[in-house]
Write a protein that binds this DNA or RNA. Structure first.
Lengths: 215, 215
DNA sequence: GATGACTACTGCATTTTGCAGTATAGGGTG
DNA sequence: CACCCTATACTGCAAAATGCAGTAGTCATC
């Protein structure tokens, strides 16, 4: 029952256990099927967190066996359900983006124009692949209801965000590739005042109106 | 000269030192002025990484003094410049998003509709504040050239991305708030098949065409 | 009954983080 | 000019998170 503040991973675990009981591995697997795109943490942490929750009395264990192998099933306790509800009433940490590719864009004056072009192309390809994954998943949920049918509406909200997020990366990368099309190298364009001014202004214009996803 | 792979923070440091010499504190401060939105790491790491780079011979030190206090100035060695160039020729890690607010959206069937509404509003407000910061910074660079005038064009590319990113969050949150407007609670809408189907479809429609930022 | 692929984790050495702690500089106040 | 406050400029350390190798059961195939 030691109760220092729980990490977000713990609430994800509680949230999954709120729907049904799972084994540790199933739980870890479920997290890997999507939520980890919103809260990326090492797989190892999923097992550590579970132990912590049991120690805190928020999750209960029960022994079963699949064949001859024993497996522990985990379930939410009333205290755990309570904790989840209380968490939802508090304020979330602001979103954070980790984007090494964009760091490279900023530093690309120390590399070749081909390095820059390749970086942008890889960003676009990666985003397109992930978009496809989310689109596929949405179609699957729409057709079958998915693993958490009681949360389909919430999944719909989050999924729309993710698709838009990847579309934004794809759109930006396409635009950036067009911008650098005629650059002789990664250094010279800094001197072209008109072009620089235009690039800086592009960002400011981009948001009017702030894209309505369903329109 | 121990050379296991360097972390991305190291390349950011090398990239800043490629423009001019800095003290450790100035360097840490510069990182806090923007790049940390693309590569968020604890401030502590900025000092650790610098020591590592000196040990590896990629960065050289020189003693100066501001008043009576001695301060160490850091500068890039030829080996360091080389390392930076080589890094740019390799492949970047894919972007990762850490978004606790969206995790709460997914779990919000265990909280009140007001919790959900508040979460969405906080997300929107936070994104609007950050967008304003980036817009301000762009105006400042446009007017004065900024601290890295030789990189204005690259900053323009990255800044356009960041503004679009925050606009996407703002736009999505606004849309989501409109969607939940008439929800009686966070649980019932799962039963409304038409609405769920509509929510899931919204995401798929959102990306055509994949928004050209400057258009 | 041996083999290889998958399931289901645990142990442990490193890395990273968060934060408290230290110490000097410079400016304003009585 | 002694004092206090705030900003600068970091370091030390305990605790948390990560990466990855290791272990061991299961199941299908030959």
């Amino acid at each position: 029952m030691t109760n220092r503040e729980l990490p977000t991973t713990a609430y994800i675990t509680l949230g999954l256990l709120a729907s049904r009981d799972w084994s540790a591995y199933q739980l870890a697997e479920q997290v890997g099927r999507g939520v980890d795109q919103l809260w990326p943490r090492a797989e190892r942490q999923r097992y550590n967190t579970l132990k912590r929750l049991v120690a805190d009395g928020l999750v209960a264990t029960r022994s079963e066996h699949a064949g001859k192998r024993p497996r522990t099933m985990y379930s939410l306790t009333p205290a755990g359900r309570d904790e989840l509800g209380q968490w939802l009433a508090t304020t979330a940490a602001p979103p954070a983006l980790e984007f090494e590719g964009m760091v490279r864009v900023l530093m690309s004056d120390h590399g070749s124009i081909d390095d820059l072009r390749r970086t942008l192309e890889e960003m676009r390809a990666d985003a397109a692949a992930k978009r496809a994954l989310f689109a596929e998943h949405a179609a699957y949920i729409s057709a079958t209801g998915g693993t958490f049918p009681e949360r389909r509406h919430l999944f719909g909200l989050a999924n729309t965000f993710m698709i838009g997020h990847f579309d934004h990366i794809i759109g930006w990368a396409t635009w950036a590739l067009a911008q650098i099309e005629r650059w002789p190298d990664t250094v010279a364009p800094a001197a072209d005042d008109a072009q620089v001014r235009e690039l800086l202004a592009a960002g400011l214009r981009a948001g009017e109106p702030p894209r309505p996803p369903g329109a």
